[in-house]
Nucleic acid binder design. Structure first.
Lengths: 166, 166
DNA sequence: AAAGATTGATTCTTCAATCTTG
DNA sequence: CAAGATTGAAGAATCAATCTTT
């Protein structure tokens, strides 16, 4: 049923798939999971926003006029539409964003960062970057950083071959 | 408002903290997020279990007698107790695990893998490993694997200095 | 009181169904 | 009908009680 000897032609290369590499896979999931939790908790405690909130605030703050079509916002974060809708509903209720009808396309919605949302985001930025530096960047040497960037590039090209970004 | 030139005193060390490293951080979160989603979707579609289900089944399948104290199971996966309780309640309802009173400590609960749970787990294993190989391992060279293991070791020691595992 | 475990409330994510406009 | 977006229900994660046993 499952013939591990004829995977994809290259057999010298496939013999690399060892328990050590499985351990590396598990370590990757575990360590990045830890980082997610730690940084998420830091944002929640110090800034009162979730990681998802921060991601939305970041994307809007980088947009022209602090405003984006809902679909563009979703695409820029690679989120599903419904997830974004729910998220925006919660952020709207808290006054961090506002939703307006789109002028050119009456189906569409535009999402705008409110003044309060911008203030919140600005208050988050430095504490968050400090936490990323403390828990992530401070652990690695410049050489490790370079190696990691290279590895992530390989993974990304493997996962999304169509993406043109280098 | 935000003065990036006077961060926290140490300027030789912090000068490494560049936008390139921020990009690496973002790429790490994005790419590992993608991997999580892809592998989670694969488990759900091909095997009918969530990533969390799989993690519990894996831990129990590796335990002596396919049985663990609830607290030990939580510790081995580094989960919070309440999260595990909810998870086990759902898996119990589906017949994948059973919970029994602990003989030696009447407060405790023992979690046992059922025959159905074991069957489910065994049916998951090969498809899951194949997917990990396809989406993750096949993307990296042996040198990249070695570098990644090294990087994850550094991160892990940085995040959990108390852990004795090398 | 502290440890082991569960429960309920809240928030977040996903899926399917819906509604409106193009 | 297809595209843009929202909604409701169900599953999953987190936090603060709660309950029992040590």
């Amino acid at each position: 049923m499952i013939d591990t000897s004829t995977r994809s032609g290259m057999n010298d290369a496939t013999s690399r798939w060892t328990s050590q590499e499985l351990a590396t896979w598990r370590a990757l999931m575990e360590t990045t999971g830890d980082l997610r939790r730690i940084l998420g908790a830091q944002l929640a405690e110090e800034c009162g926003v979730s990681a998802a909130d921060y991601q939305v605030l970041l994307a809007l703050s980088e947009a022209e006029g602090h405003r984006l079509r809902s679909s563009e916002l979703a695409a820029s974060m690679d989120w599903e539409r419904s997830r974004l809708s729910h998220q925006l509903a919660r952020m709207d209720k808290r006054g961090l964003v506002a939703r307006e009808a789109c002028a050119t396309d009456k189906r569409g919605a535009e999402v705008v960062l409110t003044a309060e949302g911008l203030t919140q985001f600005r208050a988050c930025t430095m504490p968050h970057l400090r936490a990323v530096r403390k828990h992530f960047a401070d652990a690695l040497t410049p050489a490790q950083f370079a190696a990691l960037a290279d590895i992530l590039g390989s993974l990304r090209r493997h996962l999304r071959p169509e993406d043109d970004t280098p």
